[in-house]
Design a protein around this nucleic acid. Structure first.
Length: 896
RNA sequence: GCGGAUGUGGCGGAACUGGUAGACGCGCCAGACUCAAAAUCUGGUUUCCGUAAGGAAGUGUGGGUUCGAUUCCCUCCAUCCGCACCA
């Protein structure tokens, strides 16, 4: 098991019992081992084609100021995997960096008159120190921040490649505009339709912005999800729904009654329910539809209606939650299958311009939104799909639309068909019908996924490397002129984009013609920065975006770990980026993350004073009053109400600063607690009692290891003695090897909480085995079993509590450092039991259990079960009808 | 509104593919050690009835499939995450 046959030599051990029994001092120990790892460059990763690689990555943090418990949890999990995989012989890459551009730095600049760069780099320094005190097995030599010019230069370079490859374009799109601050607002800065600072009613403005053609990969991003079998199903499902593939028909309705100034003869729309066309009672188009704008130009009431709708904001959620409203334009749309029927055409607030063609037909009987709309505007509701077991005449739509299966009715040539067939027939009819010289409709596939708008009207982001020239248009900045650096002399004393009002920065000469021209003043969405950082980690100092040899070796990331809140956007954008980088020759693969894991959040109780203000856990003392938990304010001794358990947040003041925990209890305790109990994908509740429990366990391991030293073999080569142990020792050996197997399994499957439980079990077995004080009567073979158990325990603890692991390793007098040791292998022979205990049920109720040889036949098991006292008594006078025997599992007697 | 998840003792949770519900930890109770406390160690701890043996109920709600359901299906309830300019 020990690759070097390491002796557990008494000579190298401190035999002074008093010293042995000292309490484990995490302060001194953790700093010392962190220094040892740093000096030995234990976690430095280098490409080595002769070895299998393993790339572990946790989502890099935004440098907000200090790390929070969510980081502690995330990075602990990644570190366990990294250390375990390294012990398993993999060449591990485990890097760290900073997602350093973003709005908070600009907000800090405005509030505290500090430059975003200064603020960001100071935060990084603080957080790096905090992370280092966690004892993570990171290769710090690869660290970078996305706001480093060396990083964003490469991002700009790749943007130029994407531009050349036709993956980037400009188009108009709307933003939230604060008319008082003259600033573009993020969705989170719009509260109830008003700007967060100014309080002004937010307006929508159209701006020309840059877009990445992610929609070009809609189908690929969707189908490739199937191959991502090491991703959580829920994340794949969310992405599938987000991409939103739907098969339908793109069709045109002939317009009638249009005013003279409207040239359009038809209205194009997309539908997936063309089977329900006969139930159509209106058409509706988005407030941003070109025809809406055209009509509004001549109709002040419509103008007012559109203005009103725009006040709800730009977010999908706001739009869909808003009450459904429409404006009857007076236009009519001729029904494609019933030319005498003219449907009213509305402008409606719930029709999205970004989806399909920005216009729909409404079939109220079979779509809830359409039904709500129809009831409000007193439109016809005609059911055209009727459940097979319902009578058409009796089928009435009430408050709920019918969206289920059924047979077509009231639908002319579609009557009697099922939904699928009706769709097919209706589509065929539309394809064969001519309207103004073209088929009236055609089958198409539509995706919900929209192109990715990357323009931001902000300073603290990566400048988009193009120049606008009056003569040449949009001109890319030549790569030799990169990076386009952010100017440092900017002010934040007024709202708006400092790049735009900077006196000189944007004025440049056109790279093509030399005439006066202007730089693009938009910067990238910070999601761009985080869409390829994992690739940059492979060759962080390369003069190109990536070094091909490095990415070919290290990518894809084998295990990526982060919050579920990134399940859609960040992961989807990264998947797109990898494809775009593939197309532009930077990498040879399409999928960045082979394995994905989404961890839960860290929550804490909330505390509220009588006055209604929130109190932080540090300001509250918990007391036990007649068995009930009560909280008292440490500020004024007044009682405090214990509130609900919520995600740690500044607004609720229920945060715990990891630094306090790391100083008081040590990194190993914090790490152990983060891994214990709660399954990693679920939320965890931070409690003082839990931390203290974890801390006691650290001490317990230390005590067990130090106490065991007196009972360990004096000589080397004890492994040879293991074959001849006593029963008690054999049990210990079984427990050791079982734990070894299970913990390995659990870490492989990221079930850290189960691994923790298995380690507790081994600890309990070891404690039970330990001879009483001064007993020195262990046989040599039993000493060997104890040595083996201690060694295995230390190995198991190592990835989770690495400092304690190293300290115990050293205390046991073993060679080298634990971080360099290979994972031990378990002996399968020790895991086989020759008897099993199975439950015996009568009519599904457990009545007794049966311990029997594993080899017993079904008949033997059945016979033995029926003879059990409890079974005989419980059966009484009942007749046995049937006996179900599942080998090694259960016996169920069916009796009446 | 749309999409995704979660729900098991006093608490966090475990239960492999439908096969003994409550592993492991926290807390609590009792005991040992101690002048005492802390720490540590030993034992107990789902609820109800019972001195006990044992019995009954029990995995958010209500139903269903099955010899057998925490696990599969349907209904409802509660909580959480995402919704494209927060990161």
């Amino acid at each position: 098991m020990h690759d070097r046959g390491t002796p557990l030599s008494l000579l190298s051990r401190n035999t002074d019992m008093e010293l042995n029994m000292e309490r484990y001092n995490h302060r001194e120990t953790e700093a010392r081992w962190q220094q040892v790892w740093a000096e030995r460059e234990t976690f430095r990763a280098e490409e080595d084609p002769s070895r299998a690689k393993y790339y572990v990555l946790e989502m890099f943090p935004y440098p907000s100021g200090r790390i929070h418990m969510g980081h502690v949890r995330n990075y602990t999990m990644g570190d366990v995997v990294a250390r375990y995989k390294a012990a398993r012989g993999f060449n591990v890459l485990h890097p760290m960096g900073w997602d350093a551009f973003g709005m908070p730095a600009e907000n800090a600049a405005m509030e505290n008159n500090v430059h975003p760069a200064a603020w960001t780099y100071e935060n990084i320094d603080t957080m790096r120190t905090q992370l280092k005190s966690m004892g993570l097995s990171l290769d710090w030599s690869r660290e970078f921040a996305t706001c480093d010019p060396e990083y964003y230069q490469q991002e700009q370079s790749m943007f130029l490649d994407f531009l050349e490859a036709g993956l980037v374009y400009r188009k108009n799109s709307k933003v939230n505009w604060d008319p008082v601050d003259h600033t573009v607002l993020a969705n989170e800065q719009v509260i109830d339709g008003r700007g967060w600072r100014s309080g002004a009613l937010v307006e929508q403005r159209e701006l020309t912005q840059w877009f990445f053609k992610i929609s070009e990969y809609s189908d690929d991003l969707l189908t490739a999800l199937e191959g991502l079998d090491q991703w959580p199903d829920k994340v794949r499902l969310m992405q599938r729904n987000w991409i939103g593939r739907s098969e339908g028909v793109r069709m045109r309705f002939e317009l009638a009654d249009q005013p003279d100034f409207v040239a359009d003869k038809d209205l194009e729309l997309f539908t997936t329910r063309h089977d329900t066309l006969f139930g159509a009672s209106f058409c509706a188009m988005s407030i941003e539809h070109p025809l809406s704008a055209q009509l509004a130009a001549e109709d002040t009431a419509l103008q007012a209606f559109i203005e009103d709708c725009r006040k709800v904001g730009t977010s999908q959620e706001d739009i869909e939650r808003a009450e459904k409203k429409g404006y009857d334009t007076g236009l009519k749309a001729r029904h494609p299958f019933n030319r005498d029927l003219l449907l009213p055409v509305f402008v409606a607030n719930f029709v999205l311009m970004d989806y399909g063609t920005g216009a729909i037909f409404g079939c109220p009987a079979h779509d809830q939104r359409d039904l709500d709309f129809a009831r409000k505007y007193k439109l016809n509701v005609l059911p055209v799909v009727v459940p097979a077991d319902e009578n058409v005449a009796d089928f009435v739509i009430g408050e709920e639309a019918y969206v289920g299966e059924g047979l077509l009715a009231n639908s002319g040539f579609l009557d009697g068909l099922d939904v699928e067939t009706a769709k097919d027939q209706a589509a065929q009819r539309l394809e064969l019908t001519d309207l103004f010289g073209a088929p009236q409709g055609e089958r198409t596939v539509n995706y919900r996924l929209r192109d990715w708008g990357v323009s931001r009207q902000r300073y603290w982001g990566c400048p988009i490397p193009v120049v606008h020239c009056k003569k040449c248009g949009v001109v890319p900045v030549p790569k030799s002129d990169l990076p386009v650096k952010l100017p440092e002399d900017v002010s934040f004393d007024q709202p708006g984009n400092p790049l735009q009002r900077h006196p000189s920065w944007k004025h440049v000469s056109c790279p093509t013609c030399g005439a006066d021209a202007e730089r693009e003043t938009d910067t990238f969405d910070t999601f761009v920065d985080s869409s390829w950082y994992f690739a940059r980690f492979c060759s962080p100092r390369s003069a190109d975006p990536v070094d091909r040899a490095a990415v070919d070796y290290w990518l894809p990331v084998d295990q990526y770990i982060g919050g579920v809140e990134h399940a859609i956007l960040h992961l989807l954008y990264s998947r797109f980026f990898m494809r775009a980088m593939h197309r532009t020759g930077h990498v040879a693969i399409d999928e960045p993350f082979e394995g994905m894991f989404t961890q839960g959040m860290v929550n804490h109780e909330t505390y509220r004073a009588k006055a209604g203000n929130w109190l932080s856990p540090a300001e509250v003392s918990i007391v036990d009053e007649a068995g009930a938990r009560k909280a008292v304010s440490l500020l004024n001794s007044e009682p405090v109400q214990i509130g609900s358990i919520e995600k740690m947040s500044k607004s609720r003041r229920n945060t715990i600063d990891p630094t306090d925990i790391l100083e008081t209890y040590g990194a190993d305790t914090a790490r152990w607690f983060m891994l214990s109990d709660s399954p990693p994908e679920r939320d965890v509740i931070w409690t003082e009692a839990g931390v203290e429990g974890a801390h006691r366990f650290v001490q317990r391991i230390w005590r067990l290891v130090t106490e065991s030293i007196a009972h360990l073999p004096a000589d080397a080569g004890w492994e040879t003695l293991l074959g001849n142990v006593s029963d008690a020792s054999l049990d210990l050996r079984k427990a050791s090897h079982k734990a070894l197997k299970e913990v390995g399994n659990d870490i492989d499957n990221l079930r850290f909480n189960r691994a923790v439980a298995r380690i507790y079990e081994l600890t309990n077995a070891l404690a039970a085995f330990m001879p009483a004080n001064n007993a020195t009567d262990l046989m040599p073979a039993d000493k060997a079993a104890l040595a083996e158990a201690c060694s295995i325990l230390v190995h198991l603890v190592g990835p989770m509590m690495p400092h304690l692991g190293e300290e115990c390793w050293e205390k046991l007098g073993l060679d080298g450092i634990l971080a360099d040791q290979p994972w031990p292998t378990f002996d399968p022979a020790l895991l086989v039991e020759d008897t099993v205990t199975i439950a015996v049920q009568i009519n599904g109720k457990r009545r007794d259990e049966l311990t029997i040889s594993r080899q017993s036949s079904k008949e033997e098991v059945e016979a033995a079960a029926l003879q059990l006292d409890n079974v005989v008594r419980a059966l009484g006078s009942m007749q046995v009808r049937k006996v179900i025997v599942v080998p090694e599992r259960i016996v169920n007697v069916v009796a009446t």
